Simulated assay, not measured.
Amino acid sequence: MSHSPVHPQLRLYFENPVGRLLEHPDGYLVVQYNAGKRKLEELKTFLTQASTLLQQRNWHKLLGDQRVMAAFTEAERVWITENWLTRSTTAHPYYGAVLLAHDVFARLAMNLVMNEARESGLVYRLFEDENAAVAWLLQVP
């Protein structure tokens, strides 16, 4: 079922049809999106759980694995922009390393989200390679 090797040190925090939220012992959240269509309510729950974990752990870093993800819908993009991104503006910026989707439409949708993210204090970088993404995450403050 999973599209990347499950690292034994990862701890499952939350799972629903949208994907899985995994805790990495190096102090960051792994956000793994599943393939296929999502329900908006399930995406809201998924990202709200991600926010909750980041706050509980006082973490500021996440690895977004969007490699098999379908494109965000317009409704999803609006919700992410108005809720997830605005909630993320704390004293300490969030850092997100995003593994790009294989699907070209998912990449385009993510670019729109990224433009909004820049204005919200989130620092996102896009990667094709998981090792490069993790290396970048580990070196940010």
Rank of each mutant, 00 (worst) to 15 (best):
V123D: 15
L112F: 13
P5Y: 11
L112G: 14
D26G: 07
T89S: 10
A135L: 11
W79L: 05
L108E: 05
L85K: 04
L122E: 04
A91I: 06
A101C: 11
A91T: 12
S4V: 14
L85W: 14
L85M: 11
T52K: 06
D129E: 13
H102Q: 15
F72C: 12
R77G: 03
R11S: 12
Q32S: 14
L40K: 06
Q49F: 02
V104S: 14
V68C: 08
M69Q: 10
A135Q: 08
R11C: 07
W84C: 04
D65S: 03
K61I: 00
L62H: 02
F105D: 14
E82A: 07
N34L: 05
L22I: 01
T73C: 08
S120Y: 09
P93R: 02
D103P: 08
E15K: 12
E23C: 04
E15R: 12
N131C: 08
N58P: 08
T81Y: 09
T90F: 12
K61H: 03
H102C: 09
R57H: 04
E128F: 12
W136R: 05
L22W: 00
L47I: 02
Y33D: 05
V123Q: 14
A135P: 08
L85V: 05
A71I: 06
L53H: 07
P5C: 08
Q55W: 10
Q49L: 01
A109Q: 13
Q66G: 11
